[in-house]
Design a protein around this nucleic acid. Sequence first.
RNA 1: GCGGGUGUAUUUCAAUGGUAGAAUAUGACCUUCCCAAGGUCGAGACGCGGGUUCGAUUCCCGCCACCCGCACCA
Length: 459
Amino acid sequence: MSEVKLEDIISLAKRRGFVYQGSEIYGGLAGTWDYGPLGTLLKRNIVNEWLKYFVDGWDDMYQIDSAILMNPRVWQASGHVDTFTDPLVECTKCRTRHRFDHVLRANHILEDAINYDEMDTGKWGELLSKIKCPHCGEPGSFGEPRKFNMMFKTNVGPVEDENSISYLRPETAQGMFTNYKNIVDSFYPDLPFGIAQIGKTFRNEISPRDFLFRTREFEIMEFEYFIPENIWEAKFEKWRIDMHAWFKHLGLPQDKIKEIEVPQNDRAHYSKRTIDFEYDFPSLGFSEVGGLAYRTDFDLKNHQEHSGKNLEYRPKDGGAPFIPHVIEPSFGVDRNFLAVLSNAYTEDKVEDEKRTYLKLPAHLAPVKAAVFPLLKNKPELVAKAKEVHKLLRKQTNGRVMFDDNGNIGKRYRRQDEIGTPITITIDFQSLEDNTVTVRNRDTTEQRRIKIDNLSENVE
RNA sequence: GCGGGUGUAUUUCAAUGGUAGAAUAUGACCUUCCCAAGGUCGAGACGCGGGUUCGAUUCCCGCCACCCGCACCA
């Protein structure tokens, strides 16, 4: 069996209605992908499982759904505006790009020398001629510094000026921090407690790549878990274990999940400790599907300072108020989706023929079962099959397919490719004793069971 | 954003300076008593925009998208 490549998965995803390129009939738009009907169902299943797993039924979890557009001061407070306005310079000799302030520091020039307002005015010539590229050592090789902001900018309201600028959120976390006080005031939760959120985020990536892996618009499911500072290590460990359990729940084998301790200089500005969880994707190798970050009290403290509101937590036992610390488990929905799809994609050799199927866990499969009449031109079989199909519609919430096209083998293969766990065939014996054959997607084996007992076999 | 490559039907590919062919998928009908059998008919494509040319899917340029390296991923 040859190695599965990402392009095989992209091809199947398109062919079978999981994922299409965004704006495809207009030639596409880089970094955007559209979920088709089956992809939407699969994604929905993943998201629902996540809610069941981490949010529903937990007394200490509060799910919210905050606005994508936020007051720009939020991003000032969070540090995103500052971090993002750092200009980049490119070395014309070795073609590497660097953050301008890093280059200046490497050349022992004080950052005070930078006046960002003078960007794009051509006043940098003298300074640029003096500095060396930290990568190749070439002096005076840099072009003009250029602003690069990963946040998508937009204008809110009818006037397009400085004051109307807002951003599409580059993370969902700030919506949870800005609602922290609301949750506390509405529910008076005890610490620790969490605020969870699932939603779209936007980052103007320099180069979107690798299918769903690096896109400009993507979905995150994450939560902020608020704790007193002294228990952060214990809680961090707890969530680390829970995150592994989640990936197992998605059916991802343990040896394909790797933990990476992110060293300090690679960590986000808010994080004191970060672990990345990586999945071994086809073509890409180990790449991030989730992260666990200890954000300390960085965010709430900054929001308290910038908003002027008191964001301290007041212990009910009368202890001294304090700003809670935060542990943040975070999952890329699209990357989790791609991991599930990649893991499920299987090619088997069957007597010189290739059989492609998606070995999706039954609880994630977009279609739970399919019903076939053995032969299309026998009305009794078709009628009976439609009856069974109707019966299963209720139980599966409509996620059951009926197919009488072509021959039985083709129908099996069609369902294989979309990961339907079982297929039910109505044959002549069914007409006599109300039994059907149930065929297993992974083994292709069939069992004969009573129609009355079907419900036990369907997810 | 840099360098290289690619762009033809749902998908995977072919051919051609005189507007394109297959396999596969797909629709209809027939056939078929369990793993892509067979038959008949049908629908379906040269990424977009310029240029050269009598004529461009083919050659040239620009753009867009994807793929491979690099850089980036706070």
